[in-house]
Design a protein around this nucleic acid. Structure first.
Lengths: 175, 175
DNA sequence: CGCGATCTATATCGAACCAATATAGACAGG
DNA sequence: CCTGTCTATATTGGTTCGATATAGATCGCG
């Protein structure tokens, strides 16, 4: 499941520029389970074009860079479905926050509290984003959004219920 | 939060070889929020050694490659705590499964069911691993393991409760 | 008893990927 | 007016992954 495949998938839902693909990751519920940077999206789209899996039309804009709008081709659609039918690689979750919490006893109490506040805040805003997203167009979208909500709610409950235990044990002073 | 910092953190809990560090990711609850491959662990340890943040002692073994046992130094400990006090980068969750589920309508029903079975199976075994891990030595460890359990339980509940809705809408035949 | 599989343990290489930066005009708010 | 944010492309350096190589130990199974 590399960036090329992910771009293909997004393009099955409608044409888009590289910039718009990146925005989709950040705004619509996508970002909760896939991400990619410009540094991988643009080369991926170029290569997909070379391989004939997507087509481009350049829309010249006045006094702005040209928009390169990508569309998936019939061949691209086939390749994408083929990729879906192959075994998927496993989830990868990387959480600097949880790793840091393992070392709460090495940090001053206030810093642990501040980390918890920040993390809880981020999680709440991600949950809020998932809540406002009503337009579940396909069943798959509704399923994935529902799963995301469930997980964030459970996580926030746990964080609020157990943070005090962790804060008690933090170091009194570091340095 | 790069691999070098993660290795330092693990070494605060005791000496280890590169191989053992990798094992910790896979076995003990670590893998649910951090991971690293040999391709990044070994170079990281070499560089940490050069910088004087860890020390090595080579334990020659009969008819096996030498074990290189790494220990964190006082300087390494300082650097690690300093890293904890800097702002953390955000979580990154990459789930090929959830991405694929967005396209359930493009896949044959049996394939969607099989994907769900596989994912649920993996999640159950990860949860089982978190359940058997009783030795919460520090409060941080107990906190993080508790959080992991909560999230997996919520996720599995959702998956089992809603998978039928998704399976109904899958395509009758692909290709 | 032997054969394949798995385990310990190191290490490297190419490919993939990210974060930061560069460019550049539009537009909005203070 | 000026700073910041937005649209939009693209590159570069550094990080990380996945696969592979090596090599003897040990274990299960027939």
């Amino acid at each position: 499941m590399d960036v090329r495949t992910i771009c293909l998938g997004i393009l099955t839902r409608g044409d888009a520029t590289g910039y718009e693909i990146k925005k989709l990751f950040e705004e619509d519920g996508y970002r909760h389970f896939v991400e990619a940077s410009f540094g991988s999206i643009y080369p991926a789209l170029s290569r997909l074009t070379e391989e004939g899996l997507v087509s481009v039309r350049e829309e010249a804009q006045e006094k702005r860079p040209d928009r390169k709008v990508y569309s998936i081709t019939a061949k691209g659609r086939e390749v994408f479905i083929g990729a879906l039918l192959k075994p998927l690689s496993e989830d990868r979750h990387r959480s600097p926050f949880m790793f840091a919490m393992l070392f709460a006893h090495l940090m001053p109490k206030e810093h642990v509290s501040q980390m918890l506040d920040t993390y809880i805040g981020h999680s709440e805003s991600k949950l809020a984003q998932l809540m406002k997203n009503k337009h579940g167009e396909t069943q798959g979208e509704r399923f994935v959004i529902g799963l995301g909500r469930t997980v964030y709610v459970a996580m926030l409950n746990f964080l609020n219920a157990h943070r005090a235990e962790l804060e008690e044990r933090a170091a009194e002073a570091a340095e």
